[in-house]
Design a protein around this nucleic acid. Structure first.
Length: 585
RNA sequence: GGGCGUGUAGCACAGCUGGAUAAUGCACCGGCCUCCUAAGCCGGAGAUCGCGGGUUCGAAUCCUGCCGCGCCCGCCA
């Protein structure tokens, strides 16, 4: 609790000095108490025991009596060698209600570029890919809440083999041929019959099958190879053909992502850096580096072992035929990205760790900074790895439909008075929010197994739990405004000395918001913010239990002010997590 | 084989810049709707923090060895 620490720190330091201790340690050791009933700040006195020649228990007691009082401090206790400081709730309420929740630093807003998703546009978006998009978009939203100027960017892989396969198939095969080839495969969900990502992926899959099983495979491979080669050399006709092939697929994927509230400010095509000459210029520069090496056939690499890379140290950036590789283009892309921002964050799957190392080291070798990277581990199904080939895949479109249907069932049961349109609106918000929250709630580096029952849980610990607390606050606000009958809510009120437990807890939780968000931004860990918002919802529910805003003598203006502060904090927090803040549900 | 990550109650997961009784949700047991939305609230039970060593006043947290799981180790993307 930084708010309290600012005031308490000098007092603790002074107290320690007065009993002969070294106050320089206090800054680091004075920390938030782990248990709420211990207080808000806690100072373990063990580190001072040796130099003072006293037991920690005694030191804590001495400090306790040496501490000067301050309006911010409620109680101080010495317990088992800890000095526990509890905030004065009246002071805290005054502080929070006058200055509100401070979401960071408009003063030194930074230009942040976040690249995320960047999935190959060759088929519908499935939940295996979802972690990238959801984590990335949440990071974008959190950075914006913090006050930074953020660009969300999607890097479009518009060249190379995957797009070439799709483009080849669309030209070479007609619908009947495709369906004949995929006869033994699962029939696609008819609901998505007109969605181009679900459609065109059939062509891609048919081509993949032909490449493996057909007698003409070598010929097909040669045709695709030619396309790949042409695209890598910047052949405009081929690149146009590619774009015509993938753009509808990309649009379909974006429609799905849009339903989750995920949007991008800019799409940058990989081919741009080939056609504008950046990649060629880059390869020239790399060739002049001290750590450059040549293979027998003219291919070139950097020996990154000399820069500390372990394992395979040769990083190839140029093929024997002089063309570039994916990673080479990625480096050119990064150099361009650095011209657009002063902070660069990439969201990448753990399979890209080595490549990110190579790109990062190469950028440093070129005198540029390496980007910050948020890695995440893959989403699996209980049956194992997600694989389109084996039909072992959950499409996001299907998940969202199911989530909506389940949410609609819950709404209909609980609110029989709602009409169908209202139910549909609430169900859509609840379903998509629950899906997002389920994924953002766990730390990215942890393996994640997708389970329907978790994604569709609407109980405590889920997005709907948070949404529900927020609607309670909205409902109170609506009732208060109605009761005031057009008059303005009172701006002056008395902050009562005796506060119910739920109120104190809510105030303390609100006071933790800024510390929490700061850490989340610094460490790129959105799940901690999700946890905080759950905690805040829970605290609001406690306040709701203990404090009736609408009492027998009308509106309690103090309670209402606290409720409103919690409501707005919940709302902005939910938006930062991509949870839709409904007013009723 | 090498590199990176991960292992915490029946299940899922937080905590890991070392600090007091390891937090939370699901599932389980019990209680609360004449009172601002019960998608809620209150209480209970459930954990040798993968295993072994080490550092420390103090280790889930740091170091080390082993074991399990995941990912990577292409002149693919």
């Amino acid at each position: 609790m930084q708010l309290l620490k600012t005031h308490a720190l000098p007092l603790v330091q002074a107290a320690l000095r007065s009993i002969g201790g070294d106050p320089s340690l206090v800054e680091r050791v004075l920390q938030p108490a782990r248990e709420a009933d211990q207080g808000d700040l806690s100072l373990p006195c063990f580190p001072f025991a040796k130099s003072l020649g006293k037991s920690p228990v005694t030191i804590a007691e001495d400090l306790c009596s040496a501490m000067a009082s301050h309006e911010s401090i409620g109680e101080i206790h010495a317990v088992n060698g800890y000095l526990n400081i509890r905030v004065n709730p009246v002071w805290l309420a005054q502080r929070l209600l006058t200055q509100g929740i401070d979401n960071g630093c408009e003063k030194n807003a930074r230009r942040v570029l976040i690249e995320h998703t960047s999935a190959n546009p060759n088929g519908p978006f499935h939940v295996g890919r979802a972690r990238n998009a959801i984590l990335g978009d949440t990071l974008v939203r959190l950075q914006r809440l913090w006050g930074n100027d953020v660009t969300a960017e999607y890097y479009v892989d518009d060249m190379g083999k995957q797009v070439a396969v799709l483009a080849w198939a669309l030209e070479a095969l007609n619908r009947d041929e495709v369906e004949a080839l995929l006869e033994d495969r699962e029939v696609p969900n008819p609901m998505w019959a007109s969605k181009p990502d679900h459609q065109r992926v059939r062509w891609y899959q048919a081509a993949q099958r032909l490449r493996k099983e057909s007698d003409d495979a070598p010929e097909i491979e040669r045709a695709i190879g030619e396309l790949v080669h042409a695209s890598e050399n910047g052949d405009e006709g081929v690149l146009e053909q590619f774009e015509a092939a993938y753009q509808p697929v990309l649009d379909g994927m974006l429609a799905t992502l849009g339903r989750l509230g995920i949007a991008y400010d800019r799409f940058t095509k990989e081919s741009v850096f080939v056609t504008n000459g950046d990649v060629a210029a880059l390869m020239e520069e790399l060739g002049a580096l001290e750590i450059n090496g040549h293979a027998e056939n003219g291919a070139q690499y950097l020996d990154l072992g000399q820069r500390g890379l372990k394992g395979k140290t040769e990083f190839f950036y140029r093929r024997g035929d002089g063309s570039s590789l994916y990673a080479t283009r990625d480096i050119a892309y990064h150099r361009w990205k650095w011209t657009q921002c002063n902070e660069l964050i990439n969201v990448l799957g753990e399979d890209h760790k080595l490549q990110a190392q190579q790109v990062g080291l190469t950028l440093e070798e070129l005198g540029a900074r390496r980007p910050e990277v948020m890695f995440y581990s893959f989403i699996k199904l209980p049956e194992g790895k997600m694989s389109t080939r084996q039909g072992n895949v959950v499409f996001m479109d299907d998940l969202l439909e199911e989530a909506k249907a389940q949410a609609a069932a819950v709404v209909t049961e609980r609110r029989p008075e709602y009409d169908m349109e209202t139910v549909a609106t609430i169900a859509e918000a609840v379903g998509t929010s629950a899906v997002r929250f389920n994924i953002v709630n766990v730390s990215p580096e942890k393996g994640f197994t997708f389970r329907w029952e978790d994604a569709l849980s609407f109980e405590a610990g889920s997005a709907p739990f948070v949404m529900y607390s927020h609607t309670r606050a909205c409902s109170i606000r609506a009732k208060v405004l109605q009761q005031l009958n057009g008059a303005k809510p009172p701006t002056s009120y008395e902050i009562t000395e005796s506060m119910p437990e739920g109120l104190v807890q809510l105030l303390r939780t609100l006071a933790l918001h800024d510390d929490g968000l700061e850490k989340v931004i610094r460490e790129h860990r959105p799940h901690l913010y999700a946890e905080y918002i759950l905690h805040l919802s829970n605290a609001y529910n406690g306040f709701y239990r203990d404090c009736h805003v609408l009492g027998e003598d009308g509106v309690n203006a103090f309670y209402f002010a606290v409720s409103e502060l919690a409501r707005s904090t919940l709302k902005s927090g939910m938006e930062a997590l991509g949870i839709q803040p409904l007013e009723t549900m």
